[in-house]
Write a protein that binds this DNA or RNA. Structure first.
Lengths: 368, 368
DNA sequence: CGCGTCGATGTTTACGTAAACACGTGGTCC
DNA sequence: GGACCACGTGTTTACGTAAACATCGACGCG
C-alpha cells in the first residue's frame, strides 16, 4: 500500500527480539511503533519522546532533533487509544440523527464536522434509519459505549424521554430540532420567526389567507412552523384553512398541490420546506395554475436548488452552518467548563428570500 | 442531566459513604465507573467482571447475576479507550470527503454509517471544506492520528499522489470516485455505463446528436460521464458538440441552458447531474423552449426531487446505498483478512429512469 | 481411597501514554 | 565555598481492559 511506510522497524537485538511479531515466525503482524521504540532508537527515555511529541518545553534542541529524526525514521504516530485512556478524553463528538438525506441535516452535520475539526475534535456519526423506539435506544446505548466526550442530538428529544436511555456520566448533550430547552442545551433555527415572515409576506401581498402544507407530525421544526403559521393568521383575523399533512418529500407536496388545485379560493400556500414546495409547483403546473399569477408559493430552507425552480422560489433561508457552529460551540463549552447542566435555547435567525413564486393575488390592486 | 446516572460510586474505603459525589471535596470529578469498581461491589475479581461484560462462558449463573446487578447499580460502561488499547483495534472507520452537500456524498455516507453500525463499527467524519492540497494532507494527517482502523476516501485520489501523505500502517483504504483501481480497492457507480445509457436513449429517440453539460474538471465521476458521452457519439458516427463546463450546481446548469438555448440545432442535452438538469429546465423554460417538445433533457443521479421537476426528469439512477454497502464490505474484508493490498474496482450498476423530459425531436417520425 | 481432571474464579501482566516525582549537573547568591 | 535552585532527563506509576497463567475445590475413576 503506497500510503504506508516501506517497512517497520525491528529492534536490533535479534536474540532478545522483544518486539518480533509476537514470536510467530511467519507472523506479518504489522507492529505498531510506540514511544518506547522511538526512545530506544533515539537513545533517550520514553518520557522525553512524550515531551517532544507533545511540544512540551524543557527538551534541549539537540535531543529534540534526535527524537524527531527517530520518529520520522520509524514513522511514529501517537496511539490515540492510549492517549484517550491516559487523559480520560477522546476528543470526539458523537452526532445522532435520523437521516443525512435531508438538506438541513447534512448541511448541519457538515458544519458540525468542520467546526469540530477546527477545534481538534473528530465527529462520530450514528444514523438511525427507522425511527423506532428500539432503534433510538440502541443508538444511544451504542453511543454510550463509544469513545465520545459529548453528543449532539439532531432529533425530537421526546423520543428519548422514556427514562430508559442513559448516557454515561460526563457526556454532554446539545440538542437540535427540539423544544427541550428546559432540560438540555438546545440550538435551532428560529423556526417560528421564519414561518411568521413567510406568512406575513403573503398577507402583505394582499392574500386573504394562506394555506399550509406541514411537515411530518414527529418533527418539532415542522410543528413550530405550523404553529407560527396558524398564529399569524389568527392574529390577523384571517380564516385558518385546514393544513395539509406532508412528510418533507416532494411527493407529499405534489399530492397536497393536487388537492389545493381544487380549492378555488386558494391563492397562497406556505410549504414547510422547499422540497414540498417543489411538489406544489409541479402540481399547480400540471393543473394549469400559474405561479405566482394564480397561486403564490413560499417554501422553507432555501436549498441551493430553490433559486432554479420554475419559478424561482420565495423561501425562508436557514443558516445551517451557523446552527452547526453553535452546536459545536455549546458542546465544547460544556466539555471545557465541565458544566453539563446549562439548559437554554439558542435560536439562529432566518431570512426571507423573495424570488418569483409570490405575487399579489389576481384582481388585487397590489400590496396593502 | 436527565440522561445520566444520579451519582457515581466511589470505593467504600473513606468511611463507608460509598455514594458521595466523589472523594474530592470541592471536586465534582464525575468519576467514571471501572471494572474494578463493579468487581468490588459484586465481591468478585475484575477478571470475572470482564468475562461477564464480554459474554464469555465459564461464569456460573449466580455470580453472573451478581455482577450484572453491580453493573446496573453503578451504571457501568466499558471504557472503549482501554478496550482499543488492549485489542489494538478501534472498531471505527474514517471517512474523508469534500462535502456532504452533494446528494450523492451524503447518501453514500449515510449508507456507510448504517452498514458500519450493523457490523459494530462507528464512523468518523473528516470533511475538507476547500480542496487545497494542504487541507487534504491535513485531513489525512489527522486521520492518521485518529482512532480508525480503516479509511474510506470519497474523492479523486490523485490529490493524494504526492508521496507526502502517509497513513499509519495497518490502516486500510477504500476509495470512491476514483480510477485508482490499480493501487487501491475502489468502489464506484458504473459512471460510464450510466452515461452510455443516457446518451443512447436520446439517440434511440431519433436525436441527431446530444449536447453535454459536464461536471467540474476535478471530478473523476464527471470525467467518466463525459468520456462515455463522447464515446457513444463517436461510435454512432454523430457530430460531437463542444461540451459545456458545469460545476454540479443548478446555477451552472442554468448558465449552460441559456447558452444552449441559442443553439438552433440543439434538441437533446445530457447533464452530468440532476441539479444541472434543473438549471437547464429553468433556462429553457425562460427562453420559451418546451421540454421535451423542443429539447430533451437527461440528468444523472435520480435524486428524490427529480421526479417532481417540470417536467419530471429522465435520469440515470445511482444506487448510493449499494456503493456505501460495498465500501464497508471492502473495508471490513481488509480488516478481517489483514490484507490491505487487494486493488481492484467494484462497479455498482445504474438504471435509466425514463420520465417526461425526453421525447423524439420535433418533426421526427419517432424512434428509429 | 488417592489421583487426575475439569470448571470456576483469582492474580499477574501488558497494551502506549504522560503526569508526578527523582536525580544529577552546573550556576548563583550570600 | 557551601547551600540552593533551575534545568534537562530518567524512573515510577496509573489509566481500564483482557489474555495468560495460577489456584482451588469437587467429582469421577481405577
Amino acid at each position: 500500500m503506497d500510503l504506508n511506510e516501506p517497512e517497520q522497524w525491528v529492534p536490533p537485538a535479534a536474540g532478545s527480539a522483544r518486539r518480533s511479531g509476537s514470536g510467530v515466525p511467519g507472523g506479518r503482524r504489522r507492529q505498531r511503533v510506540s514511544m518506547a521504540d522511538v526512545a530506544k532508537l533515539a537513545g533517550v527515555s520514553s518520557q522525553t519522546v512524550s515531551r517532544v511529541s507533545n511540544g512540551h518545553p524543557g527538551v534541549v534542541g539537540s535531543t529534540r532533533e534526535q527524537v524527531l529524526a527517530a520518529m520520522r525514521e520509524l514513522g511514529y504516530r501517537p496511539n490515540s487509544a492510549a492517549r484517550a485512556l491516559r487523559y480520560g478524553r477522546f476528543n470526539t463528538i458523537g452526532v445522532i440523527l435520523f437521516s443525512l438525506s435531508s438538506t438541513g441535516n447534512s448541511r448541519t452535520v457538515e458544519a458540525i464536522a468542520t467546526h469540530a475539526a477546527a477545534e481538534g475534535y473528530a465527529i462520530t456519526l450514528i444514523p438511525i434509519d427507522v425511527a423506532t423506539q428500539d432503534n433510538v435506544l440502541g443508538a444511544f446505548t451504542r453511543m454510550g459505549e463509544l469513545a465520545v466526550d459529548a453528543v449532539i442530538v439532531i432529533m425530537e428529544i421526546h423520543l428519548l424521554d422514556t427514562g430508559t436511555v442513559q448516557l454515561p456520566p460526563g457526556v454532554h448533550v446539545v440538542v437540535v430540532d427540539s423544544d427541550a430547552g428546559d432540560r438540555y442545551s438546545v440550538v435551532d433555527t428560529d423556526q417560528a420567526d421564519g414561518a411568521r415572515k413567510a406568512v406575513r409576506h403573503l398577507l402583505d401581498l394582499g392574500h386573504r389567507t394562506v394555506w399550509h402544507v406541514t411537515g411530518p407530525e414527529t418533527s418539532y421544526a415542522g410543528q413550530r412552523r405550523t404553529q407560527a403559521w396558524r398564529a399569524v393568521l389568527e392574529e390577523a383575523g384571517r380564516p385558518v384553512p385546514a393544513p395539509l399533512r406532508g412528510d418533507w418529500s416532494a411527493e407529499s407536496g405534489y399530492a397536497a398541490g393536487l388537492a389545493l388545485a381544487e380549492e378555488p379560493d386558494c391563492t397562497a400556500v406556505f410549504a414547510a420546506n422547499d422540497q414540498m414546495a417543489l411538489g406544489l409547483l409541479r402540481a399547480f403546473h400540471e393543473r394549469g395554475l400559474a405561479v405566482p399569477a394564480d397561486v403564490s408559493v413560499v417554501g422553507f430552507d432555501d436549498t441551493p436548488d430553490a433559486a432554479f425552480f420554475i419559478p424561482p422560489l420565495t423561501t425562508v433561508h436557514q443558516d445551517f452552518a451557523e446552527v452547526g457552529r453553535r452546536c459545536v460551540q455549546g458542546v465544547l463549552r460544556q466539555i471545557r467548563t465541565r458544566d453539563d447542566s446549562r439548559p437554554g435555547t439558542d435560536l439562529v435567525p432566518t431570512r426571507l428570500v423573495i424570488r418569483d413564486s409570490t405575487a399579489p393575488p389576481l384582481g388585487s390592486p397590489g400590496p396593502g
